[in-house]
């Protein structure tokens, strides 16, 4: 085992870690913003919206993330440069980068998987508690904000922790479209030093630490939220 490359590449790994964390946290935030309404309309209707949401979840969950990523970056992404004037527009700095495509793909993925989780979460809230909220004059939005949504999250917090760990472990796929997150830096080390196992082990160690942080954070969060009977 040769580890002497670490000091030289450590700054690069720090950059990579930042990319991983950005990709993970932003896709979780944006993805959940979509997942909540996607889950909700499947429970409340209207029917046509529920069908669209259902279809979205099925397609996202039924196709590999790698293919979604490539379709977006190599497919959609390659169409943009042919649009006249796009290189001069304010959007170009975003469109020529790989990261926004990775973020889009991961956001869609989180929205699809967690949309399905949230559907179950909304459904599992006892009807009586929602009825009580309505009976005391809460508007539909207040019921959602004060009762339904917090109760739904309370039910699925442990599930979400596992889901986000899976999302973290999918982030190396972004390296396939030239987003140099932690795994991508690891492969640079491999190419430049011809060491195969050490960088992989190093990268695996980083993912274990990140997973640990997610798990501990959610444990802490769970303890702050009272558990339903």
């Amino acid at each position: 085992m040769v580890w002497s490359w670490i000091p030289e590449y450590l700054p690069k790994f720090m950059d990579g870690l930042l990319v991983t964390l950005q990709l993970l946290s932003l896709s979780i935030i944006f993805g959940m913003l979509f997942a909540i309404p996607i889950g909700l309309v499947q429970v409340t209707g209207p029917r046509w919206l529920a069908i669209i949401a259902r279809g979205f979840c099925t397609v996202v969950r039924g196709t590999p993330l790698l293919i979604q990523l490539w379709l977006l970056y190599y497919g959609l992404g390659s169409l943009f440069p042919s649009i006249p004037g796009i290189r001069e527009s304010f959007m170009w700095p975003i469109l020529r980068e790989a990261f926004p495509f990775a973020l889009l793909a991961f956001t869609i993925s989180v929205a699809g998987y967690e949309g399905e989780i949230m559907r179950g979460a909304f459904k599992s809230v006892p009807k009586g508690e929602l009825e009580a909220a309505r009976a005391f004059g809460m508007s539909r939005f207040t019921v959602l904000r004060r009762i339904w949504l917090p109760r739904a999250f309370q039910n699925v917090l442990p599930t979400l922790a596992g889901e986000f760990v899976l999302t973290l472990k999918a982030t190396p796929l972004a390296a396939t479209i030239t987003v140099f997150e932690v795994y991508g830096i690891g492969s640079i080390v491999r190419q430049e030093t011809y060491r195969i196992y050490e960088p992989l082990l190093f990268v695996a160690g980083i993912y274990i630490v990140l997973t640990g942080i997610i798990v501990v954070f959610f444990r802490w969060l769970e303890q702050r939220v009272p558990q339903p009977v």
Binding site: G128, A132, A133, F136, R151, V225, V229
Partner: peptide
């Protein structure tokens, strides 16, 4: 002020 058979307190 409604009081329900199954209480329906908000458990969170």
């Amino acid at each position: 002020g409604m009081v329900f058979q199954s209480f329906n307190l908000w458990s969170h």
